[in-house]
Amino acid sequence: MSFSAIFAILISVIFVNNFVFARFLGLCPYLGVSKDTSSAIGMGMAVIFVMTMASIVTWPLYRYFLSPFGLERVLRTTSFILVIASLVQFIEMLLQKVNPALYKALGIYLPIITTNCAILGVAVLNIDTFFKDGNPLPGSYLGSIVQAFGAGLGFTLAMVLMSSVRERMEMANIPRSLQGVPIAFVTAGLMSMGFLGFSGLVK
């Protein structure tokens, strides 16, 4: 897989098909944790990490276990979500032992990541984009990891943008009914309009 292909995947998944603004994935943590910038960055890092790890694990699982035995229809969803859940648990324990500083930074975000649809979303999306009739396309393993990493970056970008706007909004005079999540959605709508401008950047 050439460098330009990798670059194209990254640009596409960060800007053009941003997980939050174009694909509507991971909205719950996006709104829940974007109240201040530092926690937005923490959550974003945790998502990048888990997404990349998840696709490192789910690709071989699909390629060598599900697809050869014809189980891709029956067990894809179940096995992916279980793998992701155990992976998150495992990462949490590992971080606690190996790198307590990092654990302090990311730890509180890890448990809620299991039910973040962006993680399962990227795992399923990788299978959709990089497999044809159950066979991997050339460069698909690297491609799927790059796509997952980029998706995490795009998510972090969206989180950080949103959190900096929301920090300012704390001070603003907003109608009572729109305070909190509703105004955050309206803001996200305006941002997503901005992101529409990236369409056509990469084919």
Binding site: V16, A22, R23, D128
Partner: peptide, 9 residues
């Protein structure tokens, strides 16, 4: 035939 569209195959 198959082609790469904007956000999907």
């Amino acid at each position: 035939a198959e082609g790469d569209g904007y956000s999907s195959k």
